[in-house]
Design a protein around this nucleic acid. Structure first.
Lengths: 126, 126
DNA sequence: TTTATGCTTCAATTGCAATTGAATTATCAG
DNA sequence: CTGATAATTCAATTGCAATTGAAGCATAAA
């Protein structure tokens, strides 16, 4: 369910932190609609260029997006959603948050003891 | 796809922020395995009681978990995963991160223009 | 009513993250 | 080479969040 080693937990946390910021969530949602450059998102979201660069880097470090230069005019840089990452985390969340995986168990406190006792009573021949 | 109004975005962000912290992620994962009290998680995760209370509150404010008192000894408090919330966010992530929703579109920069030109060439009778 | 227990709240520290303006890099056009 | 453009990096500010120890609260037992 939850990754065991620290490395994977950090990776997971980085992804969650990346999406846990309103502006980055908006940026990512925009990129899901198609590749985009800094200047385009600047207009759509009304954020400063350097601030966008900052958020891009965090999304990129989290592995959620990647970038490439325009093949005609190298001054333009396009950001895209990383399909493999989207697939991976889509599947992970689908598993992790699955309500069917919520388990029942006897609580550790006094109430749990009572229930155990009740079960003994219930299991007695009537 | 992405919630429109600020209120919903804040709600979404609160949920993501709540899970974006390693300790809270561990706590939530533990609660998915069954209801638990402060003292039990203290042993399992090795966190201070007050720190656990702090994280509980954040998870609770995000609507991800809820709490109840032990019916035998009211000093004990149990925390549980909120089934409705789990279901809701499970479905939301399932939709939002669906790789099939990643769209293609012509980029806004020079490369996009070139591709348009190429498309003109490709559409010419040979 | 006093004492103990499970948990929470408070106060203070620490570190990190979002934002902004200025300076810098990379690329292209003349 | 010079100037212009798209974007990034740097420096500084601001605010918030995780953590810790001490104090407080609610409940139960003696």
């Amino acid at each position: 369910m939850l990754p065991e080693n620290e490395t994977e937990i950090k990776e997971l946390t980085a992804v969650l932190k990346a999406l846990a910021e309103p502006n980055r969530m908006r940026i990512f949602a925009e990129l899901m609609q198609g590749d985009s450059c800094n200047c385009e998102l600047q207009e759509r979201l009304g954020l400063a260029r350097n601030l966008l660069s900052h958020h891009f880097r965090i999304l990129e470090n989290a592995g959620l997006v990647h970038s490439r230069r325009d093949q005609v005019d190298g001054r333009w840089i396009y950001y895209s959603v990383d399909r493999a990452a989207a697939t991976r985390w889509h599947d992970w969340f689908n598993h992790f948050l699955d309500p069917a995986h919520i388990q029942e168990r006897t609580v550790c406190g006094p109430e749990g003891q009572l229930i155990s006792t009740e079960q003994v009573f219930l299991s007695l021949p009537s």
